[in-house]
């Protein structure tokens, strides 16, 4: 295949960009993760696997498990909420779809940190949600929402939901309506159609969306910090603390590498699912 000069230039630019800003930093983190911490220097050039060994200490392991649980539950909640949402979007009249999609994307225009502070205004004891519920007489006393696990999940799901909706929408929109009709014709009711046709055919979207939610959820330390009262440490905050607070760069780097490894596994899973779909 002969490429135009512009195409070659663009590819070269992308390549240089990725090498400079993604690949090289990752290599530096990898190198840092197998070096030691010095008393005065951030990094001593003494190779060690101690950093990785320390990660398996029950205290740190607990942080990983907590993070994984938080991210998994967030992903599951997003999936459950986003699926009907995206399905409705994908079947909406063609003329409405761009507008509906813009409504999904608009929150991105505001920093998610700002939006998290806005959530506090909604969730706090004298916040909008409690005020509204009290006013409507649904509750007698204000609910304790802030600094609970519920608040953390509300914040996480709210922030990450569009990342689930968009790939799901893209996958669901591609499903030929006639396949659904054919399933219906062959005797499949709503649930059978969903389980046997819609979900298998949107699997790549489900995996893509889950990755886009799960991976940031591991690192979004400010939401549990602000809404959950920093009661649980998650990987994101742990890594930040190692670099900024405890100044233990090699240990932070090792934790980063573990996170990268998990992401890599998920990308591999995604690639596998896509290949299976195409076959």
């Amino acid at each position: 295949m002969k490429l135009s000069r512009f195409a070659r230039f663009s590819i070269a630019l992308l390549f240089v960009w990725i090498v400079l800003f993604a690949f090289l930093p990752q290599i530096m983190v990898l190198i840092a993760s197998v070096l030691s911490k010095g008393a005065t220097d951030f990094i001593l050039f003494e190779p060690t696997v101690q950093n990785y060994a320390r990660l398996f200490d029950p205290i740190y392991l607990q942080i990983f498990v907590d993070s994984l649980v938080l991210a998994s539950v967030t992903t599951l909640l997003c999936l459950i909420i986003a699926f009907p949402f995206a399905a409705t979007l994908a079947r909406a009249p063609k003329a409405w779809r761009p507008l509906l999609l813009i409504l999904v994307i608009i929150p991105f225009w505001t920093s998610s940190l700002v939006r998290t502070y806005a959530l506090i205004a909604l969730l706090k004891t004298k916040g909008l949600i409690n005020a509204a519920l009290l006013f409507l007489g649904i509750i007698d006393a204000p609910l304790e929402l802030m600094y609970t696990q519920v608040a953390v999940f509300i914040g996480m799901v709210y922030t990450l939901l569009p990342f689930m909706i968009l790939p799901l929408y893209a996958a669901l929109e591609k499903i030929d309506v006639r396949l659904i009709e054919a399933a219906s014709d062959l005797g499949a009711g709503f649930w059978s159609r969903l389980m046997r046709i819609t979900i298998p055919l949107s699997l790549s979207g489900i995996i893509a969306g889950s990755m886009l939610v799960f991976l940031p959820a591991l690192g979004m330390f400010y939401i549990p910090d602000l809404l959950g009262g920093a009661k649980n440490l998650i990987i994101g905050s742990f890594i930040r603390n190692q670099f900024l607070t405890f100044r233990d760069w090699p240990f932070g780097a090792a934790a980063s590498m573990l996170l990268s490894l998990m992401m890599l596994l998920m990308v591999a899973l995604y690639a596998y699912a896509q290949r299976r779909e195409r076959a």
Partner: peptide
């Protein structure tokens, strides 16, 4: 009656075979 409760079956123009 919805399609899945009817005792007729369709051969679609585009066949609509399940690709997966």
């Amino acid at each position: 009656l919805p399609p899945h409760e009817r005792t007729v079956n369709t051969v679609f123009q585009s066949y609509a075979l399940f690709p997966h």
